[in-house]
């Protein structure tokens, strides 16, 4: 049972949103349950944060950043939590939120209750679909650090990590929708994430996202069109890994 949380300080709205969420669960026949309906952060924090779906209001009792701070906390404890903001605040900084929380959705109250109801239902549906598609593959994350910040990438999205000769000590990441870089060494990642395949000195790839392998040129191609060469030594191991799948 996937838990659903709701935080909203306005009693009338809280009641409505709770109703919409329950309706949404029923309509989508989702394996979810509304386990927590809170009117302030203290009440909310009494429930232990766990993997689940969170509907949060941004401004709680005059504290404009209450929802955001809570979300940061949840994200830290449960990196894979699905967080959705419901807020009146138009100036809610979408780009900042995206960087800090990466919420699943934002619902603006300005558009009226009908719209909110529709969005809640849609979000429950999309989360439900996500859960089903992830359940068969690894749910773990790839973590890395830049300065004082930690970042996570969903293993399903990861395509490859690679280094460049001319920029030693820097690792580049390619995922389905993101390019990133950080300082580190591929060897540690090869050890920490045995599901990844080291196809030559400077490439560590996720074979789940590989599309084709040309055994003549030893060229491995991935879903985003990027490719890399598999070293002669690793050729056998690669074929073995493919056969296992």
């Amino acid at each position: 049972m996937y838990p659903v949380y709701l935080l909203e300080d306005n009693p009338l709205q809280r009641e409505k949103f709770a109703k919409y969420i329950q309706n949404g669960i029923v309509i989508n026949d989702a394996d979810m349950q509304l386990t927590c309906v809170a009117s302030n952060t203290e009440e909310f924090l009494q429930h232990p944060a766990q993997l689940g779906l969170y509907f949060l209001d941004m401004e709680i009792n005059e504290d404009k950043l209450a929802g955001l701070n809570l979300a940061e906390k949840i994200r830290q404890e449960v990196p894979l939590a699905q967080i959705i903001f419901i807020t009146t605040h138009g100036e809610l900084s979408l780009t900042t939120l995206e960087r800090k929380i990466a919420p699943t959705d934002y619902i603006l109250k300005d558009k009226g209750f009908e719209n909110i109801k529709q969005r809640i239902t849609d979000d429950i549906q999309s989360v439900q679909e996500k859960l089903q598609s992830y359940s068969h593959c690894s749910k773990n994350l790839l973590d890395y650090k830049i300065g004082s910040r930690y970042f996570s990438i969903l293993m399903d999205d990861l395509i490859m990590l690679y280094t460049k000769k001319e920029i030693p000590g820097r690792i580049f990441i390619i995922t389905k929708n993101q390019l990133a870089e950080f300082n580190g060494s591929l060897n540690t990642f090869e050890q920490d994430y045995p599901n990844l395949f080291r196809c030559n000195r400077s490439f560590l790839v996720n074979l789940d996202n590989a599309t084709s392998f040309d055994s003549k040129t030893r060229q491995l191609t991935f879903i985003d069109g990027s490719s890399c060469e598999v070293s002669f030594r690793k050729n056998k191991e690669l074929i073995k890994r493919f056969n296992h799948k």
Partner: peptide, 14 residues
């Protein structure tokens, strides 16, 4: 960015 050691670029489509 390659010339420095304290800058990192992250591009994402969301």
């Amino acid at each position: 960015i390659s010339q420095t050691n304290n800058l990192f670029l992250d591009s994402k489509i969301v």
